[in-house]
Amino acid sequence: MNILIVLITFIAMEGATWLIHKYVMHGFLWVLHRDHHDHSTDGPLERNDLFFIIFAIPAILLMFVGVKNGYSPSFYIGLGITLYGLAYFLVHDVFIHQRLSIFRQTESPYFRAIRRAHKQHHKHLGKEEGECFGFLWVPIKYFKLYFKK
């Protein structure tokens, strides 16, 4: 049952990420996200990196409360959020934006589709007219570019 909670939370985070990215990061917290699009920050960190802390706090609190209550479901929800955050870091920051110089080349149609959709997202420098707000699931048209029929 606990593994199911983690899995459902991980999957639900994709929807939450889409909503937060579109309506919060490209909305009232654009001031933090803008430098991720226009690259106006010098150095390895961006204001956008504060979202790591913003998203980590609920996961940490859920895990803390869950442990305190004998590994209640809140622990496994927090774990699912944390695992999604790890996947996000590895795919978005390491693979797509190359913050670490590894995984530069791939023949995987799935990862190539994700990279292409993310490039489409970043072609818009402003907060309006964005597209491809998802992370692990992007519009089908990008998958069709790389998956052979």
Rank of each mutant, 00 (worst) to 15 (best):
G80P: 01
I53C: 11
Y142K: 03
Y88N: 10
V138C: 01
R99T: 04
M25T: 06
D35R: 03
R112D: 01
F75A: 05
F111K: 02
K68C: 05
L29N: 01
M1W: 07
Y76I: 03
K119S: 07
V67W: 13
V31N: 07
F55S: 07
T9M: 01
L62Q: 01
K141R: 15
F52G: 15
K144C: 05
I20T: 09
I11D: 07
F75C: 10
S40R: 08
V94N: 05
F133L: 05
S101L: 09
F147A: 07
I96C: 08
K127R: 15
H122P: 02
F64V: 12
H21E: 13
G134Y: 04
F95A: 06
K148N: 06
F103D: 04
G15A: 10
Q105E: 15
A117R: 00
H37K: 09
T82C: 13
S74F: 14
S40E: 05
P139V: 12
E131C: 14
K148D: 09
R34D: 01
G134M: 11
L29R: 03
K144L: 14
R116K: 14
H124V: 07
L86T: 13
I20A: 03
H39T: 05
R47F: 08
F55I: 10
L19H: 08
D42C: 02
F28V: 03
H33C: 03
F52Y: 15
L86M: 15
Y71W: 14
F111W: 10
L136T: 08
I5H: 05
M25Y: 05
Q98G: 14
L19F: 12
H122G: 04
H97A: 08
N2E: 13
F28I: 06
H37R: 09
I140C: 08
G27R: 12
A113F: 00
R34L: 04
A12L: 15
M63Q: 07
F64E: 04
L32D: 00
S72V: 07
A59Y: 00
F95R: 11
Y76G: 04
W18N: 02
Q105C: 12
V6G: 02
P58S: 13
T41A: 14
R112A: 02
A87P: 04
I5Q: 05
E128R: 14
A12Y: 03
I60W: 02
P109M: 08
